[in-house]
Simulated scan of single mutants.
Amino acid sequence: MAQPTLSAPELLNSCHDLSRFSCGKPTLDHWLKTRSLANQQKGFTVVIVVHVANRVVGYYGLAPTAIIPTALPRSIRTGQPPNPMPCILLGQLATDQAWVGQGIGTGLFNHALARSVNGAALIGGRALVVNAVDEDAASFWCRRGFLPSKDDALVLFRSIADIASSLKAADSAAHDH
């Protein structure tokens, strides 16, 4: 029997089965199961999922946000920024524990980065913001170029310009092979 294939990232809809999703972080599981679809329908968040036969095995959420400039790392704050400064929030990013190690989280992360750069090109946005659920998550984001807030080590930032240049570098490296 053929193994069911993983979908491409797509917008969450009511046909997706969220009931069995478990990433090991109860707050992320709970948000997906109870708030994600309503938040998306109300225009608060865009939720992108990957699934196998409609069973969601990974997801992330993106939303516009605004940050007080003094909370931002100096390298991102530069010049005379508006107060608050427009940013994009990567509110959630999680992979079902049964699917960890198959590149789903990395794929979703890269998809979120590309979407954030495209979104900022359309409407503005200085940085991508993440709220890490714990210190393990914060170190995950730090390894990916995010800088902690001056006020809270669990709130991290990476400038859209930095993300765009890293995506361009990865893209040109891929084309060189």
Score class of each variant (00 low, 15 high):
Ala8Leu: 14
Gly119Ile: 09
Phe140Trp: 13
Tyr60Met: 04
Ser165Gly: 00
Asn83Glu: 02
Pro86Cys: 01
Gly107Met: 11
Leu90Asp: 00
Ala94Phe: 06
Pro26Trp: 11
Asp152Tyr: 06
Leu72His: 08
Ile48Tyr: 02
Gly125Thr: 09
Glu10Leu: 12
Ala114Tyr: 05
Asp29Met: 12
Ala161Phe: 00
Val50Gly: 01
Cys15Thr: 15
Leu32Trp: 12
Leu28Glu: 10
Arg144Leu: 00
Leu6Met: 11
Arg20Trp: 04
Arg126Leu: 04
Gly91Ser: 10
Ala63Thr: 14
Gly61Val: 08
Thr34Gly: 02
Asn39Asp: 03
Ser19Gln: 14
Leu122Gly: 05
Gln97Tyr: 03
Val46Tyr: 07
Ser116Leu: 02
Thr5Arg: 14
Leu18Lys: 15
His177Val: 11
Pro9Phe: 07
Gly107Glu: 01
Ala66Cys: 10
Asp152Met: 06
Ile123Ala: 06
His51Phe: 00
Ala8Gln: 14
Leu89Ala: 04
Ser166Lys: 11
Gly124Ser: 05
Ala127Cys: 06
Met1Tyr: 06
Asp17Val: 15
Ala174Val: 11
Asn83Cys: 11
Ile88His: 06
Thr70Ile: 13
Thr5Leu: 09
Thr65Asn: 09
His175Glu: 05
Gly105Ser: 11
Leu62Met: 10
Leu32Arg: 15
Gly145Lys: 06
Cys15Gly: 13
Gly24Trp: 02
Arg20Pro: 01
Gln97Ala: 09
Ser166Ala: 07
Ala173Asn: 08
Gln41Gly: 03
Ala114Gly: 09
Ser172His: 10
Ala137Thr: 08
Gly119Glu: 03
Leu93His: 08
Leu72Lys: 12
